[in-house]
Simulated assay, not measured.
Amino acid sequence: MSDVNYRKISMDGLWNNNPATVQILGLCPLLAVTGSVVNALGLGLATLVVLVGSNVCVSVIRGYVTDAVRLPAFVMIIAAMTTVIEMLMQAYTFELYEILGIFIPLIVTNCTVLGRADAFASKNPILPSAVDGFMMGLGFLVILLILGGMRELVGQGTLFTNMQLLFGPMAANWQLNVIENYGGFLLAILPPGAFLGLGLIIAGKNVIDKRLKEARKAKAADEPKVSRRVRTTGKVS
């Protein structure tokens, strides 16, 4: 376990191998329910918990499952975790559960969950698998929140509408009316708005990655020059 690079696991989940912006997985629920922040947060938290739970369970049984039944066993674990989350949401956030509808049970078919179980958890101990599931789930959740916030703001001029569906009566006054007397922009709330929003997020990430790569190249090109000056003058100028 000493050779596990938790920093790499974290960066892969949040940025370098983000399920939504790099792997482009789980797009159906991501695009369908991100009309508001509360919907995005509800689905994102559910997916995160399923990812962590399934990764841990797969890691526990990895030495006892043969290749012949590996994938069916993983799917059963994911289905069981999803059922638990579905029942909890029915019990404590029923209205939000009804809004999210079929997309909660469809977490079973989310390629991100099965992919992490097969690619990482089945080959690593419990703690790294739990961290991998958490960071992948967190990366997915962050994109959901950004997209949900963008669509809600552009579409309705508000943020954090109906947060009481997830956090109870104490969140009834969390709504922010960012744009007063806003007439709304229907395209942002409809599915095409989700595609446009996700495209902008991916484009933004690509621009940042390009600039970081150019900065690293410039730094690498300067290092030999600095070394030569040090050898020639004995000091850095």
Rank of each mutant, 00 (worst) to 15 (best):
S2H: 14
D3K: 14
D3Q: 14
D3I: 09
V4H: 10
N5P: 02
K8T: 08
I9Q: 07
W15M: 06
W15R: 03
N18T: 08
A20L: 07
A20Y: 12
Q23N: 06
Q23I: 12
I24Y: 11
L25Y: 07
L25I: 12
G26T: 01
L31F: 05
V37Q: 13
N39S: 13
L41V: 04
G44C: 02
V60A: 10
R62N: 06
G63Q: 06
T66F: 11
T66L: 07
D67L: 04
I77E: 01
A79I: 06
A80E: 03
E86V: 06
E86Q: 12
M87Y: 14
Y92K: 12
F94E: 14
E95K: 14
L100K: 11
G101S: 06
F103C: 02
V108H: 00
G115L: 07
N124D: 03
P128N: 01
V131T: 07
G133Y: 01
M135G: 08
G137P: 05
L138C: 08
L141E: 06
I146E: 05
L147E: 11
E152Y: 09
Q156V: 09
G157Q: 05
L159F: 04
F160V: 06
T161S: 11
N162A: 13
N162Q: 13
M163N: 06
L165K: 11
P169N: 08
P169A: 06
M170A: 09
W174Y: 02
L176V: 13
N177K: 01
L187V: 13
A194K: 07
L200I: 13
I201M: 00
I201P: 00
I208P: 06
D209W: 05
L212N: 09
A220G: 01
P224A: 11
V226D: 14
R229F: 14
V230D: 09
R231N: 12
R231V: 08
R231F: 13
V236M: 07
V236R: 12
